[in-house]
């Protein structure tokens, strides 16, 4: 236990780094994912195809490979960026298709009759989407989206293996100094992760209950 207290600054620094990774790549993934989701319902076939291929390829590539690409292959090809930014790029690329799928399934989840009804009473495209479909879709999108961010929180740990000094890497550092209390150190790190994931999980459950619509 004293090993944890002694090295609390290291853990907190790592935790800060983890939160930084989470917020930056979460925001970026949300932006990219929204664009990809919009591309997938676009009337232009080639754009749709591109978005589908992007989603399929990135979702079926292991995260380790994506981050390996960012941390080793990109510098090998002559890209000079620091590892933190590279990790953010990798996590964004990996998470964005999941965001896109969450958004897309939310929109697909709105029964077609809603849009039909809106159209048949003479609403325009903008009105149908803005007043009828969107408000219902957002309710259904938020819980799965939070789940994506929970997974992202856990996935940031992989960046620790690729030269980013976040929580997981700080655990390794502390274990190198205090090899005698591995259990306490790892449990402390797990606690920090649970702090984020369980909180997000509770929020997701709360939101889900609150926005549930009876149809």
């Amino acid at each position: 236990m004293d090993a944890v207290i002694e090295n609390l600054p290291t853990f907190l620094r790592g935790f800060g780094m983890t939160l930084g990774l989470l917020v930056l790549s979460g925001t970026a993934a949300f932006a990219v994912g929204s664009i990809v989701a919009a591309m997938r319902i676009s009337p232009i076939a080639s754009v749709r195809g591109f978005a589908a291929a992007y989603t399929e390829i990135l979702r079926n590539t292991p995260l380790t490979l994506v981050l390996f690409f960012c941390a080793f292959i990109l510098p090998y090809l002559g890209v000079r960026i620091d590892f933190f930014t590279l990790a953010v790029i990798g996590l964004t690329a990996y998470t964005s298709p999941f965001v896109a799928e969450a958004i897309r399934s939310g929109f697909n989840g709105v029964p077609i009759g809603q849009a039909e009804a809106a159209r048949s009473i003479g609403m325009s495209f903008g009105q149908t989407l803005g007043l009828v479909v969107m408000p219902q879709a957002i309710r259904m999108v938020i819980p799965p989206l939070i789940n994506v961010f929970i997974a992202l929180t856990k996935n940031t740990s992989v960046a620790g293996a690729f030269f980013v000094k976040e929580l997981f890497a700080s655990a390794g550092d502390v274990i190198n100094i205090r090899g005698d209390s591995v259990v306490a150190i790892l449990l402390a790190v797990a606690f920090f992760y649970l702090l984020v994931t369980v909180t997000l999980g509770i929020i997701a459950a709360r939101v889900e209950k609150k926005v549930a619509v009876l149809r």
Partner: peptide, 19 residues
């Protein structure tokens, strides 16, 4: 269950490996 689900797999691997 909540504990296992909320924690990175990587951390669990390291835990089992070291402990």
């Amino acid at each position: 269950l909540e504990f296992f689900r909320g924690m990175p797999v990587l951390l669990m691997m390291l835990f089992i490996l070291l402990v």
